[in-house]
Design a protein around this nucleic acid. Structure first.
Lengths: 214, 214
DNA sequence: TTTTAAATAAGGAAAAACACCTATTTGTAA
DNA sequence: TTACAAATAGGTGTTTTTCCTTATTTAAAA
């Protein structure tokens, strides 16, 4: 019986090895190798065609080259490879970003072994797998205002990072070499754009969107 | 050959199952069962003595009852059970807390399969396992001011969680059914205790110490 | 060159946050 | 019961934040 080949990308060695061990117990699949990040995967892919699998199981939060960038690269350069996201990340926007760059499935790490196996089978044989969660999310993204992408200027982002510190706005103005009144302006614009009420809201937004990491 | 029994506690089902699959490939160990959080484990332990393993592999970030609380409970109620922390968390204070409540080993999820197997063997046969990282950390904790333990009252913790929202202090006073002046008091005490200058500092402390999760 | 849009900045006022000191109330240990 | 500490809360004044409106300056587009 010909087994489908799988590659696992996750920066936590133990987890990728554990998942590999598990996938190897599935009768229809075998693990080719595991990677610690996107860069490693790109290198492997470029070395030889025999390193190109049928399916990639991709974590999202990784150093060097994260899951979104890596998936983007794979779908652009190796159309035949199916990427399935496998992450702890359940933020709507993250899932959407992943689907947008071409992931054909999205599973939370909080699922059953059998669910993973079925997902892999569906992907290998039908070319897609979507949980109800993902489908619902896609429906919502059609109706809701998910399209109104919020774009932040570089200065605003810089300011927001500083706002996550204990500096007063005056001090932030100093380190950014601007008038305190300009800072006031940034703040007011961001309050409106991000629909928050005060500095704490700003801080929370920055953290949730990985603009600032505590 | 008698195998040592292992229980795995991790809120991400897939990961605990994957690690279970891996541990089952180790000749000296077999997995009894897996749990999604501390509460599940406590229930299991209380059901029957046959559910009490030799070793518990414990994740730290879990809902309901986290790794630290759970380890504390185990070491207080089941001295014979060895707990090894297995986490992505590499914050010094977290590791120290875990050791303080009686974990006899600490492994990052970013390690090799063989390292885990050796650690398990050492724990089963010698009763301890410490990486160089942990040893260094313990040395540092002797010299440094790690001892100045900060203890927070329950009300202060509740307040701090609310402070991580966009509510004003007056609104927080309302939901906590206290005078705004009492809230002022909580804030002032926390500023001093935690050595922060303003509400953002409070928020950051809450996040870093997992009092509030964004 | 004129027009427009964006970035920077100011004034003024109200609200919220912060600091410091004091006064009840309450539970509990001596 | 008395004494004492902890929790709750009031007073007052300063600083910071927040909100609104308007004015330059700058850079790019028409």
């Amino acid at each position: 019986m010909i087994k489908y080949s799988v590659v696992i990308v996750d920066d936590h060695t133990l987890l990728s090895q554990a998942i590999a061990t598990m996938v190897n117990t599935f009768s229809k699949f075998k693990v080719l190798y595991t990677c610690k990040n996107g860069q490693e995967l790109v290198e492997k892919f470029s070395t030889s065609a025999k390193y190109i699998p049928d399916i990639v199981l991709m974590d999202i939060n990784m150093p060097l080259m994260n899951g979104i960038e890596t998936t983007d690269w794979i779908t652009k350069n190796h159309e035949t490879v199916n990427v399935m996201a496998l992450s702890v990340e359940d933020e709507d926007t993250t899932i959407l970003k992943m689907l947008k760059v071409g992931a054909i499935g999205y599973l939370l790490k909080d699922t059953e072994k059998s669910v993973l196996e079925n997902a892999l089978i569906e992907i290998a044989e039908n070319g897609f797998y979507h949980t109800k969660t993902v489908t619902n999310l896609l429906m919502k993204s059609l109706s809701d205002n998910y399209s109104e992408e919020i774009t932040l200027k570089e200065r605003e982002v810089t300011f927001m990072k500083h706002a996550c510190s204990e500096m007063t706005y005056k001090e932030i103005a100093d380190v950014m070499c601007l008038s305190p009144k300009t800072i006031d302006g940034y703040r007011d614009v961001l309050f409106t754009k991000l629909n928050v009420k005060n500095r704490v809201g700003l801080v929370m937004y920055a953290i949730k969107n990985k603009i600032y990491t505590p």
